[in-house]
Every structure is written in C-alpha cells, then in structure tokens.
Design a protein around this nucleic acid. Structure first.
Lengths: 202, 202, 202, 202
DNA sequence: GATGAATGAGTCTTCATTCAT
DNA sequence: AATGAATGAAGACTCATTCAT
C-alpha cells in the first residue's frame, strides 16, 4: 500500500535534481537520464511522474521560482526598517552561495526558454510579479515613514530589480568588470539614492 | 580565378541566417539544416565553412554583438549633448523593431549558453565592456560639461545598462507589467535623475 | 525481476551478428544498421550495449578469436598421437566450411585494422599467443615421444601457423594457384617433414 | 599546350601519395582529400585523373605490387648462388625499412579488401603469381645445381612465401613473440632445411 | 510504484563527387 | 589542367519515450 505522500516526496526529489542539472548543464544539454541519475532513480521513474521532458523542466522552473520567493518571504515580514530590508533583498540575490547561484542559473534557462513558451511567460508574469510587489511594498513602507523620497514605488522597484537581474547575469558570466562586490556596491548606491536627503546632493 | 571574397561573403550570409534562426527558435531547437534553409544553401555548405554546430553558433554570437555595437557607434560620435545621447542609447535598445528584438533574443541565447562556455564569457567580457565604456564615456562628457551630477561614471553606466538588460528581458517575455513604454519611461526617469539639478522630486 | 542474463545473451547475439556482417562485407562497409538487422534488433539497441561502432567491432574481434580457440581446445586434450593432432590442427583451419571461412574473414579484418590499433595488437598478442603455444605443445609432445625431430618447437610452430595464415589468405582470395587442396597438401608435407626420419637432423 | 607526360607524372605522384595514406591510415579511414593533401594537389585533381575513390585505390594497389616486384627483379638475374638469392628474398621482405613496411601495409589493405573484390583477386593472382614463380625458379635453379634437395619447387616456394606473409603480419602487429629477428631466423632456418644435406625426401 | 531494456525518430557530421571558372 | 566551392546522400549516434515485468 503506497504511502499517500510518496508521490509528493518523489516529485520533490526529482524537481530538486532537475534544478541541479539545469544549473550545471543548462537546458540545451539536459538529458532526462542525467536527472534520473542525480535523483537516484531510474529513467522510467521520471516519466512515471512527468509526462514529458518539457513538463519536467517547466515544473522545475516553477519549483525554482517558488522556492526562491519562499526563501525571501521573511524579508517582507521583517520588523526592520525599509532600508535594511532593501539591503536584505540585495544581499539575498547576490550570487555568492551555491544555492543562490543555482537559482540564478535556472532563471537564466527559464528566461532563455521563455522567449518562445507562453506557459513560461505566464509563470514569469506570476512569480516575477510577486517579487516586484514585494520590493515595491517595502519602498512604499519607506515612503510612508518618510525615509524614502517621493516617486512611483513600482518604478523604483523595477529599477532595482532589473538592475539586480542585469548585473547578476554579468557576475554569472564571470565578468572581470562586474564582480559580486561591485554588484553589491552598485545596488547599495542605488538604494542610498532613494533616501529623502537623497540624490547625490553632497 | 577565384572570387575575391566568396568566403567572407558566404560566412556573412550564413551568420546572418544563424542569428535569425537563434532568434526565432532559440539555441535549444536550432538545427543546422534550418540555418541552411534560411541561408539558402545546403547543409553541407554550413559545415564547409564552420567545423561544428558549436562553432557556428559561437561565431553567430560574435557577429551579433559586433553588429550591435557597430549600429550604435554613431551615438558616441554624435555632436548632441550627453543627455540626448543617453536617450539615443535607451531608444536604440528598446525592443521595438524587428532588428533590435532579434538582437536581444540572440543575446539571451548567448548569456544562457555563456554560463558554462568560457569562450562565450570572454566574448561577453570583450564586447559588453565596449558597450559599458561607450555609455560611461557619455556620462563622463556630461559630468565634464556640468550637466550630470558627480559620481563614478562607470557605476552610473552599470546601473543604466544592467537596468536596460533586466527590463528588456521582461519585455521580451511579454510581461504585462513591463511593456516597452514602461521600460522607456523607467530608463528615462533614471537618466533624468542623473541631472545636476537632480534630487528628483523636491 | 530482471532476467538474469539479458545483457550477456543480447551481447552475444549482437557479436555473432557483427562477425557475420564483417565476414560478409568487411569492416570498411560495415554499417551499424546492418548489424542491427542481422541481429534482429533495432539500431538503438546496438548502441545500448556498445558505446560506439569501434567498440562493437573490437568486441566482435575478441569474440571471434575466443570462439576460434575454444573450438580447437579439444585438439590439445586429444589422446591421439602428435602427428594426428597436427593434422587436426591443419584440417580445422582449412577454409572449407562456412564457419571457418567466416572466422578467417574476420581475422583478415582484424589484422588489417590492427596495424594501427594498439588495442587490437594486444588482443592479437594474447589470442595468437595461445594458439602458438597450443601448436608448440603438440610438437613438444612429439619430440618427447621421439616422433618429431629435434629443434626449437616454437620455431616449428611458427613456421606451421604462419604458413597456414599465409596460404589461407591466398585461398580466401580465390587464387587459382592456391586451392584448399594444395593448401592442405602443402601443410601436410611440411608436417611430414618434421618426422624423425626426416630433414634437418644433420 | 600540355606536356604529354604530365598525365603519367601526375598519376604517379597521386598513386605514390595514395599508397602512403593507405599505409598510414588504412583503407577504412582513407579520404580522398587526405590523398590530395599528401600529393600536394587539390581534391578536384584526384578526380580529374581517377573516376572514383575505388578506382584510385585499386590503381594504388596495382602500383604498389608492381613497384614491389620491380624492386626485387634483380634477385632473379643475380649471378649469386640459389641459397644466397633465397636469403636476398627473405631480407628484402623483412619489414625493417620504411619502404618495405609501407608496402606490407598496403598489401594488408589489399588482401582485406580483396576478399570481396574480384578485381583485386585478379590483381593478386597475377602479381602474386609472378612473385611465386620468381621464388620457385630460384629453387629450381638450386635443384638443378644439386644444392637443393628434390621436391616440388612450387610447393617449397609456397611454403616459404606463405611463411613470410604470415610472419610479416605478426611483425607488423608488433607482436612481442614475433620480432623481425625471429622472423628472419625462422625463414633462414626453413631455407637451410632445403639443402641437399638435409634429408626430407626419404 | 519502479525499473531498465528496447526503440526509432531526429540530427549532426563526413566525404565522395560535381562543376563553374 | 587544375581548382575549390558546393552539394547531398549516407550513416553514426543520441535520447525521449514506451512498456513488459
């Protein structure tokens, strides 16, 4: 008699493995058999839980996005002041630790693939929207408390998160000109510029 | 008597076709035979000029980057004031016309693939560096003429170009929350914030 | 519950088919798909058990050699007198029956290919050495019993087996001057010359 | 106006190159373009002189055989005694110098290919027959002069040349058990056994 | 639930051959 | 006489997918 949770457990195990393989080898080179090996199951088992390779990868993309948001949900609920929380956001996205780097690499694959996959575009719209709202709400908090200068909080959020995305790619490409340190400094400089006393001034 | 430039001509023709196919179908689905069809030559001809599919795609990435820089070189030499030139930069990168969209899609493939291809990383370093320097030099001009506020011009440049990259991706993913219009407005808002009078609001 | 020996069984089946195809068409014209057809399996199955065409053919060479030795092992243990056993050896190598002709043709392919394949050279060294030792031991027996004249048994063996190889090739090439009958007669004449009464002696 | 001898000259040059390539890479791996490179001409030129790859290789086989016989014709006309001439024969076939090794390797390819090419079988019949007759005539001379014992000279010749062929293969396969020295010693031992002093006959 | 043997469609790649110049 | 650009048929190899056990 099968445990009711076997399926969820097994799927989780397979999706985690899929993310690892995508991060390591990219989508182009991903073979179902590699995922199977990584997950420690047989190739047949993968297809027992996922109808096709496409389904598998799409599910992995969703899994990656969801886990990523989850891992940052605490920032929203943090009692710290908005600036600190924005800095948490930045820190949490710096591609320094294994986990974050893997997540970035999976996003890279998702975006590349999403260019011609409506399903993935919807996924991005949904998940990325959550993420944008999270940042915007922090900014709005800052404006409410008078720490952050006036302006469209969504626009500020878009500037910050798109900046993070753009620089993260360069870091992942091992650019000599864009190291993690410089990425962090640049993001922090942007956030500092949001303060009331703000811009440059000096 | 051999044609003087059959090779250069043919390679160009093939690389242009390769970029089109990458833009349309992505790297994952690119078939050498599709490139051949697009270029109007036989499959054998592709391999006559390029040793492997990998070589072909890498050459196409370089071709795409080079053409992109070339198409924007005029901005550097423009007699217009720095702010106008920054706006030209932004305009030239908005994914509106076919040509620019195609270029963005090829970059997307390059970046996704570059995560594990040192050759592509070097290519990105070289070409993207040129691009960063181009923007930074415009900003430096603006600072010299007193129109742009003080600050590290390279950092400003990095903010702008990474922002462009990040938002362009969302636009290409057909995000409802990030249209071309919003991308343009956001970039322009950032550039406006660079002015001496600056402090945004206030 | 997996069949205990599907793999061994299938490999055997494929190797037998490979030998047949090599014998019929030679290595130059061997197509993996021909082997598949001959073995009654799909092309994919061949690659499921052998990494490459090269691996397949090498394994077939080994298989052919091993089977050949096995088929003659009884001569070594035969209770008959040395001369009879040498005649058995000769008989067993005459390219008359289908099985022996096939084996010769595979050896021909092996030797041609072995000229530049260290792996095949090692294989030949190992297997051919067994074969040489088998013949030499018969000759040694004959010398011990006084039927065969003095002399280096290995040298005698080398003369006999190299003679067999050289003539077999001519027979296989359908030489009018070297028929199976003449080959047999010539080999027997050589063996007869090994008798005590005979040559060398002084 | 083309030199009348250009064709013969060019063909010779190409055939020599073909033999070199066959010797180096074998027939399986021979590419027409390799022959072209080796001959210092273009690929098109090969087909200007030879209708197909098959024709080219067959012509090369003939060329190799003819050159080989020519190089040994002097032994037939030598004023030396039959035993010396047999020793010359043996020496001339030991795979020691580059030229002889190359010739052997081409023969190996010819024989492997000849198993299913009637044209090559005829070629072998013709050329190998010359070679057999050459050796037999030396033996006949020896019998006439009383130096070589009675017996069918063609059978003696077949023993010797097949022995040479068989051992040469083992030498070419770099057998540890069959070195050039041992090959030479074994052949000489066989020839010594042909002397009158040495019984056989009865 | 899970396996892994087997499949065969899909592609890259090779290379003999052709032919305009 | 000679070239080398171009072709396209051929074939090795990959791998998602199926299914009997």
């Amino acid at each position: 008699m099968p445990r009711p949770s076997v399926e969820a457990e097994r799927k989780d195990q397979i999706l985690r493995a899929t993310c690892q393989v995508i991060a390591e080898q990219g989508y182009v080179n991903l073979r179902v058999s590699d995922v199977a090996k990584q997950a420690g199951v047989s190739g047949g088992t993968i297809h027992y839980y996922f109808d096709s390779k496409r389904d598998l990868v799409h599910a992995a993309f969703e899994y990656n996005f969801a886990r990523s948001l989850e891992r940052r949900r605490w920032i929203l609920d943090s009692p710290d002041d908005p600036f600190s929380r924005l800095r948490f956001v930045i820190d949490s996205y710096l591609p320094v630790d294994e986990e974050t780097i893997e997540a970035w690499r999976v996003w890279a694959a998702l975006w590349a693939e999403g260019l011609r996959e409506p399903n993935l575009q919807e996924l991005n719209e949904r998940m990325y929207g959550d993420w944008r709202r999270l940042v915007a709400s922090i900014i709005r908090d800052g404006q409410d408390s008078g720490q952050i200068r006036a302006g469209d909080p969504v626009q500020f959020a878009n500037m910050l998160i798109s900046m993070i995305d753009g620089m993260a790619f360069q870091v992942l490409l091992h650019s000599q000109n864009m190291t993690v340190q410089r990425m962090k400094a640049t993001c922090l400089a942007y956030v500092d510029g949001l303060s009331q006393a703000s811009p440059s001034s000096k």
